[in-house]
Write a protein that binds this DNA or RNA. Structure first.
Lengths: 111, 111
DNA sequence: TTATCATGCAACCAGAAGGTTGCTCGAAAA
DNA sequence: TTTTCGAGCAACCTTCTGGTTGCATGATAA
């Protein structure tokens, strides 16, 4: 089933990033592709736990896995992260405008 | 109790951003400060639900609330969002390096 | 061919999340 | 001084999450 995300909202990507273990997995994957047992080593949780986290990341479109022989190898997927970054930049921009207006308002009040 | 976040990891902020309703609340707050009932109107959930979401956002340091008369008014808190944006940019940069190396490796393989 | 290794699948479990309702309380408006 | 309005607190419920274990299976290595 392709196209899990409806691409409209950044929420699922943020949710996927909102977990320490998943951030560490991504960090390790940013050193290069790895198999599940490779990722499990030193992760502190079981292989099945890692698998579940990988599925969450894949559901958000942040990683992609493929079978190679008896192992399944995972790697980063660039697009979604860029989308997330853009979303955050946009939110951050709205934010700035908002706070600028607020500041202006307060100063007006004061005078 | 001040200082809820240990500021080391961006995960809690991402987790707070990882919910549609909370993103909408932030969007509305970016138009200016609002009371809880103000935020509740048109949110689709009850006042208590909104309150809980606000607490999550506050726990991540993204908003701040203060009492004004009988109402409690909420507004954005800039710092955390900037931190999150920086984190995402850094991750994104690692990512780029990683994928560049991968591409290089693949090309080498091919030749 | 037989072990062994890397996974997948399913069931299960405890605790967190997201939501609701009911009641209480202080501030404001009538 | 009464209402009324905006919130807080607590209890409760259901669903999702993060984790585990046990077992089955297809590839690889001996």
């Amino acid at each position: 089933m392709p196209q899990r995300r409806r691409s409209g909202t950044p929420a699922p990507v943020f949710a996927a990033l909102g977990d320490e273990i998943r951030l560490r997995l991504l960090a390790r994957l940013s050193q290069g592709p790895l198999s599940i047992s490779g990722l499990t080593a030193g992760s502190g949780i079981t292989r099945q736990g890692v698998t579940k986290h990988l599925r969450v990341l894949a559901g958000a479109g942040l990683v992609r896995g493929s079978r190679r022989g008896k192992e399944s190898v995972w790697q980063l997927e660039r697009r979604r992260l860029e989308e997330a970054r853009r979303s955050l930049e946009q939110i951050s921009r709205q934010w700035d405008v908002s706070l600028a207006k607020l500041k202006l308002f307060v100063e007006q009040e004061d005078s």
